[in-house]
Design a protein around this nucleic acid. Structure first.
Length: 441
RNA sequence: GUGGGUGUAGCUCAGGGGUAGAGCGCCUGACUGUGGCUCAGGAAGUCGCGGGUUCGAGACCCGUCACCCACCCCA
């Protein structure tokens, strides 16, 4: 066994069947996004390191794939470039840079790979695709509502019926933490613990908070508030500081607007949702399905990010679906349509010896012109072996060009499934095969 | 980063100190212009890598690497 043929850990080769599945999912998502007026954008695989540093939080900084300086500076081991870590920060850079060329309200989608120096696990890779949608230039809660609607549409079109979109707000979270007396510098720690509420339960979160130095009293009253909200009681959100009150009102607007969209009934206010990225400033969202521990995607509002590049604040909000997370669940559940298990060609042209090759190539051209996908078998193998190859690939028809056919200007078309064959003039074969394919459906 | 599991033929895996195995796939033939079924034959492995124990190591011991699972964190 030759060593080292596997791709690097956390990356994958996509074989034809994989690519078809990926393109199927991407196609659905893209059409949904375009239905909301989002426009396509692509950005480079790598960015200047400074562009990315300091945008994702401490954890994120560590996971950035850095590219060493080249040339005479190589020996220093220093990095000046980095593979992009997400699609949001590059978007903010693009908007800051091309501001004059872009519309005041810029709605864009972007489906490209990103890289993280993470440890691979199920549904987690070091190279993976994100399917982002973002709207820049508007602070309106309508933006959040439509993002949730677009995500819901995409999920439904992919065949999901059991997803939920969790919704929370960074400033609401801050206000709640303040209200129970957790010091500002412990907010980050508290959020990490709170984020695990649905995973490890209130007792687990209590233990975790204690280990992070949060007073037992504050932890208890925080948990009590989350318990109330989980039961649908919104009183914990009433007596908050002005920021908290505004944040709660903002979420209420989003929910009200989303109620008139396909996201109706899918959104759940969840005060324990935290999310890792540090650039979020307002509403935060996450899509989940019950049978996957992590999320299928997430997003939120980041009104300060563009300003970090241009100095001019532009309100922005977006959502990102993780392509491989979706693929993992869809594969586990067998959600792909059977039509994806397709064949590379409708017909294969077989010949008996090298002298038949020019005729085979010419016949194939004619068949393609008739609208068929045609594979020409290139080697003068025994006819049985050629047919076996076609059958193994699921190619339904074999066009046989032997001495007899060449002499008569005909071609014998074998229908592998029907185990029948018929001879046509070379001019009529294409139409006959098309007809047979159509009959079959 | 922590804990556990697994590395043997292209693939899935058996073998737990004494000649390297099976199924599937692949190749050849029976069938010299016709696939699936059947039969006969064939190719294919430094048993992840390095060391150790032993007369003898896929097997036992130590180390190491890779992959998988669960944590951590995330899409």
């Amino acid at each position: 066994m030759a060593a080292g043929t596997a791709p690097p850990s956390g990356t994958r080769d996509f074989l034809p069947e994989d690519v078809r599945r990926r393109e199927y999912v991407i196609g659905i998502i893209k059409r949904v996004y375009e239905g909301y007026g989002y426009e396509p954008l692509e950005t480079p695989a790598f960015e200047n390191l400074e562009t990315l540093l300091g945008k994702y939080g401490d954890e994120g900084n560590k996971l950035i794939f850095k590219i060493l300086r080249r040339g005479e500076h190589e020996a220093t081991g220093q990095a000046d470039l980095a593979l992009r870590y997400d699609l949001t920060v590059p978007l903010a850079r693009v908007v800051a840079h091309h501001q004059a060329k872009l519309p005041r309200l810029f709605k864009r989608y972007q489906i490209q790979p990103v890289w993280r120096a993470d440890r691979p696990a199920k549904g987690r890779f070091r190279e993976f695709y994100q399917c982002d949608v973002d709207a820049l230039g508007s602070p309106s809660p309508l933006v959040e509502a439509e993002l949730c609607a677009a995500i819901s549409d995409a999920m439904v079109k992919l065949g999901f019926s059991d997803f939920t979109i969790r919704l929370n707000h960074r400033q609401l979270l801050t206000a709640v933490l303040n209200s129970v007396g957790i010091a500002e510098e412990l907010h980050g720690s508290a959020l990490v613990a709170v984020d695990k509420l649905d995973k490890i339960g209130p007792e687990g979160v209590g233990v975790e908070m204690a280990s992070r130095g949060i007073a037992a009293g504050a932890a208890a009253s925080l948990l009590a508030r989350f318990k109330q909200t989980a039961e649908g009681d919104t009183t914990p959100f009433q007596a908050l500081d002005p920021h908290g009150t505004a944040a709660y009102a903002n979420l209420a607007s989003i929910l009200a607007l989303a109620d008139g969209t396909s996201a109706r009934g899918r959104i759940r206010l969840d005060a324990s949702l935290a999310r890792g990225l540090s650039y979020y400033t307002g509403a935060i969202m996450e899509v989940n399905v019950p049978d996957l521990a992590g999320s299928l995607g997430g997003g939120g509002r980041y009104d300060n990010l563009v300003g970090m590049f241009s100095g001019q604040q532009i309100p922005a909000c977006g959502f990102s679906l993780g392509l491989e997370r979706i693929l993992v669940v869809m594969t586990d559940r067998g959600m792909f349509p059977p039509s994806l298990a397709t064949t590379p060609a409708d017909v294969m042209v077989a010949t008996f010896d090298q002298s038949g090759a020019p005729h085979a190539v010419r016949l194939a051209g004619g068949l393609r012109a008739a609208g068929l996908r045609v594979l020409v078998y290139p080697d003068p193998d025994k006819i049985g072996k050629q047919i076996k190859y076609a059958d193994g690939r699921g190619i339904p028809f074999v066009a046989i060009l032997g001495d007899d056919e060449l002499k008569a200007g005909t071609v014998t078309v074998k229908d592998l499934k029907a185990q029948a064959q018929q001879t046509y003039s070379q001019a009529d074969a294409g139409a006959a095969i098309l007809e047979a394919l159509k009959r079959r459906g």
